[in-house]
Design a protein around this nucleic acid. Structure first.
Lengths: 351, 351
DNA sequence: CTGAAAGCGCTTACAG
DNA sequence: CTGAAAGCGCTTACAG
């Protein structure tokens, strides 16, 4: 290589080192059938030994493809900071699947004060990746419009009302709301409260809607003061517990959408000397890291986040042109069901 | 645009739409002084209206630059999952600074079973970004060698013994260890324990080393069973608390490197009916999300993570060729001091 | 002030 | 089976 460098910076350098043309070297590296086996081996050995890696921009420009997938997530709100662990796990799942197709994952985090729609548009039109997985969908989500209008393959994690030709995968949070209300109702509870997070997020809206529907359907009291809105901090959970026991007609059960709220409520009840279960039945999201240590054991719903990541990646691959070899029938619009575990926090109504 | 598309896919399309040459349009978009103001305005208006964004591969290939920075972090270990929130906040800080230079940030997360050195080598040689910020350095870190050998600008968050021409920023965890031991010693404690995380990480090693040095220096007992190693789960913190009170000659104080360990110890002490402070003095990492709710208030050290992110970005920019306009004297090798807050968890030795 | 042309590093029809 | 050449979308000396 020039000036004593070990690693070739271009095919040109590698080719001249081998006494071959760039075309042949390129074909060899890409395992084209037409190249002689001996040549292929020689090229592969040299590339490996010298540490040659194709220049990304060159390949990308020529092929119109980048061999990478983008994952877009916000990083500024309190909600997403609580969700940080969740997203790291999701990313691991996505990567596990992408690795089968030699695709890389890059993560784009939007931050405070940034116009996410504009950011998404820039990412999409720059063609920096071959497709996007988009998290934290909103009821109307301009990021989706931006990506679709750039004709980029897209899978959204969470539904949205924004129209477009993209598959989504959504967790069945409405099912969690309905089942929880029914279960508590069967246990004799009528005054069933709910706590939710940021109402800008589509899944939060849907969860709350399902709660209301089920309460109405069972002719249970639907009261504004039984609906607690939080930003997902522990402290808010503590406060909810305390507030509940200052209400003249208080809820005897609560369903929490966010795991941190459940943890906070446990703590709040302890502070005011009330018992989880007997004094307030709780159903929530179960999750080793956050609620795994709660005592009594939290009754609720958990998710195999890693598996969700893999499925999102599969969905995306199925719609990226050029990966049709990998296409099982594109299973658009997947509803992902949650897994219920009976714990000790949902005692029967004490009367 | 061809076939009714609104957004031009190339300069060529935009230029012919405007009746100009690609060269002129390119110069106008890049605000070159030589283009006539009227032309520049006309081009800018059309680009904005039609939503033109330059193709990334084309620009990158020509300029040899990508206008993006990479942030590399692991995502598989328990430690990093605890650190997820930390890294999201760090990323926000990095982005805030990069935005001043019109640089994007992309995050690369390594996952289980992946050879990180190989991954780093691939990223670096592919020239997918203009420089890297590397987190979670190890005492010997092959990722650093891989990036340096590809001549990519690099800043490491945390020192490493791996040689190379790169600046680092390291938090003064050794200072935390020394100061904590001294403080507890002044309060009358001799049996001072310590808890640490993954010994593969450089900062953990350095923290422990400093603890040992200070204990030795003050002629305090340096015992293997006073050193607790954890993976950073709450449960391990709980267990540490319980184990301590089963020891024949037990520590009367402990310094925790990980915030989750402090939270776990509080909980463990409560379970066995011991009091934070009186029964066991605790100094730890203070951090709103994890330890903000502890009662009594945790004495310890906190970090302005957002500011660290900004500083890392500044360091990196100062060494990227072409950004010399932004160079304040490159302040390599920054030791970042922690901020101490007196709480209520470090009571004096009770005798 | 603008246009025509070269060239960044690849891949891939097209010849041979 | 291999080489020579075109072209992906940009930027930038070089002319005019």
């Amino acid at each position: 290589m020039p000036n004593g460098r070990l690693t070739p910076r271009s095919l040109e350098e590698l080719a001249s080192h081998l006494g071959l043309s760039v075309g042949t070297v390129s074909r060899a590296l890409n395992n084209r059938p037409e190249v002689r086996e001996e040549t292929r081996d020689r090229v592969a050995a040299a590339a490996k030994k010298l540490g040659y890696v194709p220049n990304h921009a060159g390949r990308s420009l020529r092929q119109g493809t980048t061999q990478a997938i983008g994952f877009i997530v916000n990083s500024d709100t309190v909600i997403s900071r609580n969700a940080a662990v969740f997203y790291f796990e999701l990313v691991n799942g996505i990567k596990a699947e992408l690795a089968n197709h030699k695709l890389d994952l890059v993560m784009f985090t939007g931050s405070a004060g940034e116009d996410m729609a504009q950011y998404a548009h820039r990412l999409a039109t720059r063609r920096i990746v071959d497709g996007f997985i988009l998290a934290e969908t909103q009821p109307f989500d301009e990021r989706i419009a931006a990506i679709c209008s750039a004709d980029m393959p897209l899978v959204s994690f969470g539904q949205s009302n924004t129209p477009g030709d993209y598959p989504w995968l959504d967790v069945d949070f409405p099912g969690m709301a309905r089942d929880s209300v029914r279960r508590l109702h069967r246990l004799g509870h009528s005054n069933i409260a709910v706590s939710v997070g940021d109402m800008d997020l589509n899944y939060v809206v849907n969860f709350l809607e399902a709660y209301k529907e089920e309460m109405t359907h069972l002719a249970l009291p639907l009261r504004e003061d039984f609906i607690f809105k939080t930003n997902g901090t522990l402290q808010e959970g503590v406060d909810i517990a305390k507030r509940i026991f200052m209400m003249p007609e208080r809820p005897t059960a609560i369903v929490n959408l966010l795991d941190t709220t459940s943890v906070g409520i446990y703590r709040g009840l302890e502070e005011i000397g009330k018992a989880v279960g007997e004094d307030l039945a709780i159903i929530g999201r179960v999750n080793d890291a956050a609620t795994g240590m709660l005592n009594p054991v939290l009754t609720g719903y958990d998710l195999d986040v890693h598996a969700i990541g893999k499925e999102l990646a599969r969905l995306l691959i199925s719609i990226i042109p050029g990966y049709s070899y990998a296409v099982r029938k594109p299973q658009a619009n997947t509803v992902w069901h949650m897994h219920f575990t009976k714990g000790e926090s949902d005692a029967a109504f004490a009367g």
